[in-house]
Design a protein around this nucleic acid. Structure first.
Lengths: 351, 351
DNA sequence: AAAAATTACGCAATCGATTGTGTAATCTGC
DNA sequence: GCAGATTACACAATCGATTGCGTAATTTTT
């Protein structure tokens, strides 16, 4: 299944058409061509028309590399995320891309795989390629933020999304994790759950810290005793970990009657495990997740969860980057906080 | 929730360190610095050491824009895909990115959202940004391929993945859709299914055409009559369409006893619809999908499907692009075909 | 010791677009 | 009809790294 074809000979290595070629054909200077293509006021209407006609005819395409070098800025926005194949993350990217494209920017994506070293390497590579802005959702491991300093020092805007660095002064787009977790926990309490467990992520990341706080606050508010053995932390709340945690919770002497999971992946595993063991959901065990992943509607019973405005977050982050890259002088750092929504489905509906 | 901070004043607008700065400090020429940084043989060991020391001290980072302009090539690979938030696609991208990063390349991603116009616009933007290679999985609508000609004419490699253009002479990375569909259909027949329906996609795309051919071939091989009313084509096999198609099939006078869906999304909808209607799976209706999306393991009963080596396909596509961009002279176009695997799960296990 | 070879570096053009400044040519006002 | 204003374009430097070619200094060869 291999086909071979040869060169056309004449067609190949024909260098791209430049403004110099157009200038030569029209016997004007390259600067005139450059300005004409941008409808500069100092160029006559006729000349603009002529230039554009020739450009069209010759198939001229601007070399943005050259422009970038001259202007010291590219039309590229860098993005560093953990894993692209997570529903929340790919929606985030969609939002970033949509907003960036609208403004004539391309998006360069790199995955940290939740490793600090990768994040540093990616940041460096993106810096070298002279991106004009960076959107970051931090890796699970990250605790030091020095790798973002080169951007700051060179006035390249850095915007954090979702997984942000409190210690680092820059734009942020987040959700109210505390409130969302409080809502979710309160909902479980209202459904009559008394022994509510928490499956949480790394305490290095704001999103998990804040969700834990919300969970604890709700329990306190309703005078429900907090039990350490009902709280589990995991560095990667994947399906496998979910089963492990489910086994731990459900083989306790007094197992929880509800679990709040900080992501849907683990929550789904809880339901699957419980179903295997013949534990009724939500009667014997109520489960609520976080993110509103597609799987939350596929699992039976459907999973209650907290919806994350992922695309909107991506759009806002991109807008922040673009705005910051325009106004180089006055730098104003702001944190945008978006609303979440509690989605009550069968996995917690006891009443 | 808004914080404001002012400029440092002295820190800002400090232009990046260039080889000229290093040259000045060491009182040598920029060319020497450039060569020293690349361990050029004509530079003495001591000079190389000196240059690197100063570069390190001053925090020098190469300006790849400048290098790109001079070399007429970037370290960026462009990717055009339909939707990033599909499991298959994001895995594909992961593979591309891994391989590209390994070779020191960045990946620029753009989504066509399955629209031809978007695909053309994305191709143009990527061309302007002077990517050194392009990986494409075609939009559903695409029927003309002229927008890829500028790349070909300028020796920029274009590699198609999964959704390829038969008419277009370039590298391709695909799976054996015919064989996969044949296997899937044969499996249904072996389970005793006699009235096997097909939920298919747009005939513009090879993957759906080939899968339909495989389905038809299997039916013929086993002397099962082919009924047109058992074959449905949809331009977007999403969940909603899945329900619509399920309704059509299951409200027929003689409904099918099995459905082969060319993607998992629709297959999952079939199962959900059937469960709602009290139709037993797989006894009354066997369902098999395609792609091995995460949902296929979440749905109850678990979905039989065909696994797609997405990451591997991405890696191979990136490798092809990188290889092609090295050898400008002899262009050899090849099609790589990967194996798929039939995953038999509860949704088709009748025996 | 003179010639040849090698070592180690500098000079200057180049990639393509951008832009501040300069300058003819045309136009305006009185 | 002439100074001054305006129009419409050209000149040339610039962004930062790369690289063919040139050359002085040192080493090797015979």
């Amino acid at each position: 299944m291999v086909t071979i074809y040869e060169n056309d000979g004449e067609m190949k290595n024909k260098k791209g058409v430049t403004i110099y070629d157009i200038a030569q054909e029209l016997k004007v200077s390259p600067s005139t061509v450059s300005r004409a293509l941008k409808d500069h006021f100092s160029i006559s209407k006729e000349m603009i028309k002529e230039v554009k006609k020739v450009a069209q005819k010759r198939g001229y395409r601007p070399n943005s590399i050259a422009a970038s070098l001259r202007n010291n800025r590219t039309n590229n926005i860098g993005v560093i995320i953990s894993w692209i194949n997570r529903p929340f993350v790919s929606s985030l990217i969609s939002g970033i891309e949509e907003e960036a494209n609208k403004a004539g920017y391309n998006v360069i994506i790199s995955q940290s795989h939740d490793s600090f070293d990768n994040e540093v390497a990616n940041a460096r590579a993106l810096y070298d390629s002279r991106i004009s802005g960076l959107v970051v959702s931090l890796a699970m491991e990250t605790q030091s933020y020095d790798h973002f300093n080169p951007f700051i020092q060179n006035n390249i805007p850095v915007v954090f999304v979702d997984r942000v660095a409190d210690e680092f002064n820059s734009d942020k787009v987040v959700i109210d994790n505390f409130a969302a977790a409080y809502m979710a926990t309160e909902h479980l309490i209202e459904q009559g759950c008394q022994r509510i467990a928490l499956a949480c992520g790394s305490q290095y990341r704001n999103i998990y810290r804040e969700r834990e706080s919300g969970y604890l606050a709700a329990l306190r508010e309703y005078n429900i005793p907090i039990k350490d053995e009902y709280i589990v932390h995991s560095d990667s709340l994947n399906a496998q970990e979910g089963f492990r945690i489910a086994e731990y919770f459900l083989s306790m002497e007094t197992p929880p009657d509800a679990i709040f999971s900080v992501n849907d992946t683990a929550a789904v595993s809880f339901i699957q495990y419980a179903k295997e063991k013949g534990i009724k959901i939500p009667e014997e065990l109520a489960v609520i997740g976080f993110n509103n992943d597609p799987v939350s509607l596929i699992i039976d019973p459907q999973l209650s969860t907290v919806s994350h405005p992922a695309i909107e977050m991506g759009k806002l982050a991109a807008q922040q980057v673009l705005k910051q890259s325009q106004y180089k002088d006055v730098v104003k750092s702001e944190a945008i906080m978006l609303r979440t929504e509690l989605l009550v489905r069968a996995s917690t509906k006891r009443k």
